[in-house]
Design a protein around this nucleic acid. Sequence first.
DNA 1: AGTATAACCTGTCTGC
DNA 2: TGCAGACAGGTTATAC
Length: 281
Amino acid sequence: MPELPEVETLRRALTQELEGTKLRALHIYEPRLVQNASERDLQRALVGQRLRAIGRRAKFLLFDFGKYTALLHLRMTGWPTLSPIKNPRFVLEFTQNKTLSLSDTRRLATLHLVPSARADELPPLSELGIEPFQPNYTFENFRAILQSKQEIKKLLLDQRKIAGIGNIYACEALFASKIHPQRRAHSLSRSEARRLFEQIEKILAQAIAEHGTSVRTYRVLTGEPGNFQNFLRVYDRAGEPCVRCRTKIVRIEQGGRGTYFCPKCQGHPHPWPLSPRGRGE
DNA sequence: AGTATAACCTGTCTGC
DNA sequence: TGCAGACAGGTTATAC
């Protein structure tokens, strides 16, 4: 469920509540959760350690316990909460009477244990591409990624190329940039690429300011919904009139994911009608 | 390299 | 009410 803004919202709330406490106990109830260690490995590495900081890399939450860091990916339905819940996938007991539980209906969430000093060099973080708001998110790097035959929407979802964007914000950024989701990435003009590059950060920043998007199951740590669903212009709006031109928003499928867009404002999948003599721009 | 499909899971909503 | 089918904010393995 969560993309970069939702994970960042959770990170800030978790930091407020947990930073500086010590881990007293750790229980894993979902065997598939932990990808590269056993429950005992985790306990030996983390129990008794102080939670130094809670960071974020793309859609991963990073629980830094000093020597080791636990990487939590929420996938579709993962949701950390400080309240008691039924069927938690893990329970972390901290000092100051704080308990962190993971709710995850679809059981797709993952947890990795890595040495903190080398976290960025090891999978899964080493696989991630450039990331909005990081120093490597430059227009030059962004344009290099666009040198691909991939449809632009699919490329935006490829975490190895650009990390942190998911289905909602990919649709919204393309709408804001007036780019058709089926355009081949390399066919974007320099000015189109520039618009998209800027709209991605602008929309993600707005979404963070609004505490993320609650369409279905995502909730802020407290259980409150976010607010950005009130600002969505195409996502989940198939059949509704476009806010710019009143044309009906269309839903198509790309790579097994729903894509929402305005067939008028966002132009044609091929920027120029195929003429006998090649491409424009 | 790109594409397409299925797989991992379970819940919710829609339409008949 | 029941039931089938579509769909869901994500990623990955596999086969062409």
